[in-house]
Write a protein that binds this DNA or RNA. Structure first.
Lengths: 188, 188
DNA sequence: GTCTATATTACGATAGAC
DNA sequence: GTCTATCGTAATATAGAC
């Protein structure tokens, strides 16, 4: 019981630190310090740094699935759901301006490190891609849906990178408005 | 003479390694090994890692200015110049698929590290932004030009992040085609 | 300008007591 | 399950010989 709670605390702290500082720049001491644990005890729960990354990605995948399910129930129409995704850059605007997109920055970092966990990080993107594709498939012929899903995904990444680089909230708003206009052409 | 040549070699090697592996993941030994220099001698040329980063960014700024000037002479029309920028994601497609955008990934990394050289890295983006704005100012009213410039910049970053994550050249092609269509609406 | 040798620190990881 | 103590390695950086 207690063990599971500690493990969860470690994963949560690592998740946040990996996002805010990056994976490589986060040390065991950082995570242990945040949780209030000694470095030695750390290895009882996770035997390597990669093992923590694995757990963090698994947690993010689970959280993402939960979020997407919630959006399904909250938004009645496919365009409403797609718009819900588009507006993350506003909803999470402050975090994105400081730390970038949690999915995009992790993928970028692991790609440069040529890290073994690259493909699992890509799955985070794939979750959104597939979900967006399903929404578009309700609006356009099925063979166009994936292309449009990738376009919306690219929008989110472009906005996130520049939002972090320039720290310009107005830019984000303008891009969301432009995306709203683009999207309206596909609404039945 | 010889000293300047060695310094140049160091900056070139560091530039490439920072791009391919990331700044933090690149060690002095990596750079020294590439140039064929001992670590000790290294500090004769650069007294710290930050000093190398500074020199690398300066070199990139100079290279970027040169590239933009070249595009000015090569392309007679503003739309041709903007398109030349848009097509970088194809021209440098292989590198971007492997290492991402050199400007975007550096900005993302330095932002997470909260690095002192962040603002100088941002200048790389600003060079492209200002240049694109000037091109758009020849096509649309001046007050719209910066918004459109940022949109094109966001396009390049979105495509670069997803190109690296999914390693999908077809996606890049489709996005460039879409951008060509978008751009044609602004051409006189 | 270039080298070897070394100081120093931080990190990932292990051993073993409690 | 948690702790302290410690090892090995790699990285930044310095000192001093040639």
């Amino acid at each position: 019981m207690r063990g599971a709670a500690t493990r969860e605390q470690i994963v949560e702290a690592a998740d946040r630190l990996f996002y805010q500082r990056g994976y490589e720049h986060t040390s065991f001491a950082d995570i242990a310090g945040t949780v209030g644990l000694s470095r030695g005890n750390f290895y009882y729960h996770f035997k390597s740094k990669d093992a923590i990354l694995d757990a963090v990605i698994e947690a993010r995948l689970a959280n993402t699935r939960r979020t997407l399910e919630q959006w399904e129930t909250e938004q009645a129409t496919p365009e409403g759901r797609i718009l819900r995704f588009v507006e993350i850059v506003l909803t999470n605007g402050a975090d994105i301006q400081q730390y970038g997109c949690p999915v995009g920055t992790l993928n970028t970092e692991l790609a440069k490190l040529d890290h073994a966990m690259r493909d699992q990080a890509q799955q985070l993107f794939t979750l959104f891609r597939d979900w967006l594709r399903e929404q578009f498939a309700l609006l356009v012929p099925a063979e166009q849906a994936d292309d449009l899903a990738m376009h919306v995904l690219a929008f989110s990444q472009g906005v996130a990178v520049l939002s972090q680089a320039f720290r310009d909230e107005e830019f984000v708003r303008r891009e969301v408005d432009r995306m709203r206009g683009w999207l309206s052409a596909y609404v039945k």
